[in-house]
Design a protein around this nucleic acid. Structure first.
Length: 273
DNA sequence: CGATTATGATTAA
DNA sequence: TAATCCTAATCGC
């Protein structure tokens, strides 16, 4: 379920609940039980998010690396917490709050070098660092793969998932199949700016929000411009869906032309076709 | 109750 | 590209 901003939200909330406290660690599933016993009752120092990766730092030097994949999730309970479900990989609790980790493909103890190796594989994370545009543009320029593929590549920019990919390309009016290297520097710059804005917003708010204030009224319950939709929220044209990098990509046939269309600016003034 | 699907990513081939 | 790792909700029978 999670894209980058969700991991940052988890890290912040977990820091509020757990940082610098003695934390009970238990596991329902046997897979992580031994490791949980080793951590149980020790001091949880802090949670750290980078892209879609999460690290839990413990005072004894242990580092737990978590990746939630497509289905993983954290759930939070206030005391008294209900008994854990059978699928709880790791439960972290203090007298007041409890965090359950469900369904992660990755939950492992790592050493500092392994953590660093993971970070080294990631491109700039606009939530963590603020800057990174140069690196982003550099990476785009040197690949001929479609921009829709490049945006999911975590070493181009860390944290974008399938929803943000579709919505960012929509917001910048870029056709997803254009080679990344063919973007003008202005387009790359706009893409980075939109990425930074949306991911930072997503880390602050409870849910992914891509629709701008001006078009909020028009949305009427719809959450996205094109992701998972059949008609473009802005112009009503059909949304094309196609598989790209093994995921379904959505794009408006009209707002995201393969080439720039001269003077015709879609400012949302156009009625439904 | 089985099949399907979902905001992911690595490894093998 | 395909197989692999993970869970839960939904849908059709």
């Amino acid at each position: 379920m999670p894209e980058g901003p969700v991991l940052h939200r988890f890290a912040r909330a977990q820091n509020q609940d757990l940082a610098n406290r003695r934390v009970r660690a238990t596991a329902v599933q046997p897979r992580f039980a031994r490791q949980a016993r080793r951590l149980d009752g020790k001091v949880f120092v802090r949670a750290e998010a980078r892209g879609k990766h999460l690290f839990h730092h413990w005072r004894d030097g242990s580092i737990v690396h978590v990746h939630l994949g497509m289905f993983g999730d954290f759930t939070r309970h206030l005391s008294p917490a209900p008994p854990p479900r059978e699928t709880v990989r790791l439960r972290l609790s203090t007298p007041s709050a409890t965090w359950d980790l469900i369904g992660p493909p990755t939950c492992e103890l790592v050493d500092p070098a392994q953590r660093q190796a993971i970070l080294d594989r990631l491109g700039p994370d606009p939530i963590a660092s603020g800057s990174g545009e140069d690196e982003f543009v550099r990476r785009l320029r040197r690949t001929d793969r479609p921009i829709g593929h490049a945006l999911l590549d975590q070493k181009v920019v860390a944290g974008i998932g399938n929803i943000y990919r579709a919505e960012l390309l929509f917001l910048t009016g870029i056709h997803p199949l254009r080679p990344a290297s063919s973007l003008s520097s202005r387009e790359s710059q706009q893409l980075w700016e939109a990425t930074r804005r949306l991911l930072v917003r997503g880390a602050k708010e409870e849910r992914i929000r891509t629709i701008g204030q001006g078009e909020r009224a028009r949305a009427k319950g719809r959450r996205f411009y094109v992701y998972g939709e059949e008609e473009c929220l802005r112009c009503g044209s059909p949304v094309r869906s196609l598989p790209l990098s093994g995921r379904t990509l959505y794009a408006c046939v009209r707002c995201q032309p393969r080439r720039k269309t001269g003077r015709t600016r879609d400012r949302g003034t156009m009625p439904k076709l």
